[in-house]
Design a protein around this nucleic acid. Sequence first.
DNA 1: CCCAATATGGAGCGGTTGATCCAAAATATG
DNA 2: CATATTTTGGATCAACCGCTCCATATTGGG
Lengths: 211, 211
Amino acid sequence: MARPREFDERAALEAASDIFWTKGYEATSTRDLMARMGLTPSSMYAAFGDKRRLFRRALDHYLERLREKMSYLEANASPGEAITGFFWDTIERTLGDALQRGCMLVNSALEVSPQDAELCGAVAQELKLIEGFFRARFSEGQQRGDIANTHSADNAARQLLAVLLGIRVLARVRPERLLLTEAAGQTLELLGLPPLPAAAASAKRSLRRRS
Amino acid sequence: MARPREFDERAALEAASDIFWTKGYEATSTRDLMARMGLTPSSMYAAFGDKRRLFRRALDHYLERLREKMSYLEANASPGEAITGFFWDTIERTLGDALQRGCMLVNSALEVSPQDAELCGAVAQELKLIEGFFRARFSEGQQRGDIANTHSADNAARQLLAVLLGIRVLARVRPERLLLTEAAGQTLELLGLPPLPAAAASAKRSLRRRS
DNA sequence: CCCAATATGGAGCGGTTGATCCAAAATATG
DNA sequence: CATATTTTGGATCAACCGCTCCATATTGGG
């Protein structure tokens, strides 16, 4: 019994997520947001609350896709390939992004004030989720016999998480294929995980995607 | 033949570096800066130019200490211990910081726009310096016979750099000793580098420092 | 001792910020 | 068709932004 919304909330969130991802929280103004989301202040504030709460939802929206990637790999690849595939996907996507936005989660992890318990906690929890993904896959691979029992899954997961985050930092300022693939590849190799596709193959692949 | 400065430029830079480190570039206002540096707008702008240039110098000031740390380790420790010591120092310092500021270089790496070629390049170059430190130490250790020749110094350096950056991201939102030490420790171990001091010992050591 | 030269204090510039408010528009229900 | 309810557009708010300007203070050189 009232006027219906003229905009798609999901699409608006997607737009908001995009700007926040590109420019960061502080550097994004509410006017940037309204322009990109195609909303007037009234609509935006009514639908999403203030800037902070909108950011929270935009981040969640971004993270949802990250979680989907993990689920997909868990369901459609062997444990070892799931881990390697995660790194491969991360590197290829990062190198393919002309805007060099890196990862919104990592960007947020460093921009968010440690005093902001709620946002900080959300980021921390998501990192634990990724760590858990690594640990579960690694452990599963060990039970299967694909992966050697030389190292504990706990430590392997911690190491993989650190390397992943490091790669995302590096990619932001030094988007060099060799640097990223070798940093990841070396770690995968030492842990007895499947290697990344050769540079030539992955280059061809990203070329195909671009066209 | 003119009035002399009443403030110490170095101390002012130190103060500026501190706020930028704590709050980031965007979230720091010129008023924050002037208050903390104890300067009026006139003095600040006359001495340091605009906010961006001040940030550049504040970052350089921060990085100088980072370089000193590398020089110190290079001069006063074996190659392997220099690498391990760098990680140890990083972790202890990070865990000891109540403000959880992490590393200003890493924070900047993600906040700086990739379009900002100058600042971005400065960050990239500093990362190369750290990578070079790892590579040189690793290579030297191999020549000495301290470190196995199983892995190339190039790749080891890339991996160490990634883990280091990853740790600094993690520390920002999950300052858990075990997580950081094991992520680093595992990598050091796999590369045949000296282990980090035991948790008990390092806890004692940081306690001593605090008192 | 006066003057050129630099530093200081602080008012204040135009513009932008995040956010609010209200009249007009659009719908489902009675 | 009227009314209650919600959305929409856009003017507008106070506060803050980075930065400039100028009068005043402080020095060294002639």
